[in-house]
Amino acid sequence: MDTQIDIILQGGQFKKLLEEQSVELREKYDMKRAELEILYFLSKCGTHNTSTDIHHQLMMNRGHISQAVDSLCRRNYLIAIPDKNDRRYIHYEISDYAKDLVTEMTKRREAMNGMILKGVSEEELKVFREVSEKIRKNISELI
């Protein structure tokens, strides 16, 4: 397999960059990396907002998810809403208290994406998204 593909799929460089970009926010809001990742995910996920959804999309350890959402709920960043049809599921929503943090995080993530995608045309980005989606589906089928 192509080494570049391995590097991109493993995401090590992206994770390192994301970690570096989030240090200031983590210190400012006294957050763990997992808490920030979950907040960002929940700000973008729509109705796919359960612990299971977080696990499937972020591939996080279920124990880390549980600890993080409990902490975020205790600190009023998240609101836990029991599912109306199935008591086993809890939906998590961003609270009004967390809006400023989410806005700041989104701006930083957009700026980082702008730097990462520097020199990439819209057409190249479209092809990348299509190929990425095919790869994601293939990986999902394998696991």
Rank of each mutant, 00 (worst) to 15 (best):
S43T: 08
D70M: 03
N76E: 04
M105A: 13
M59D: 09
L58E: 10
Q67F: 06
D86T: 09
G119K: 01
E93S: 05
E133N: 11
R108C: 04
M1Q: 07
M105L: 04
T50E: 08
H64P: 05
E19P: 07
L25T: 07
A80T: 09
Q4V: 00
C73L: 00
C45S: 15
K44D: 10
V102H: 07
A68D: 00
T47G: 04
L39C: 10
T3M: 01
E141P: 05
E35S: 02
S140C: 03
K32W: 06
Q13H: 12
D70T: 03
Y89V: 10
D53H: 12
H55D: 14
R87Q: 15
L101T: 02
N49Q: 10
E110M: 10
K118P: 14
M1V: 05
L39K: 05
L25W: 09
I94C: 00
S132W: 02
S22R: 04
Y89E: 12
Q13E: 11
V120Y: 09
E122P: 14
L142P: 05
I90W: 10
D100I: 01
M1H: 02
A98L: 00
K16T: 11
A80G: 06
E20G: 15
G12M: 06
N61E: 12
S95I: 02
E20I: 12
I116Q: 10
C45I: 04
L117K: 14
A68R: 07
I38W: 04
I7T: 14
F128I: 11
G11H: 03
L125N: 09
L58G: 07
I38V: 13
I81T: 15
E110N: 12
K118Y: 14
N49P: 13
N138F: 08
R26I: 06
H55L: 03
S66R: 06
A68H: 02
L125S: 01
I81V: 15
S22W: 07
S22D: 05
I143H: 02
E130T: 14
V102N: 06
I79E: 11
I90R: 14
E93H: 02
L142V: 05
I65E: 06
L17K: 12
V23G: 05
L142G: 01
T103W: 04
S121P: 14
V23C: 06
M115L: 13
D2A: 03
C45E: 09
F14W: 11
D6T: 02
E27Y: 03
I139A: 00
H55T: 14
H56E: 15
E122V: 08
I116M: 15
A34H: 07
A111D: 13
E122G: 03
L117W: 09
L78R: 00
N85G: 13
I116Y: 12
E20P: 08
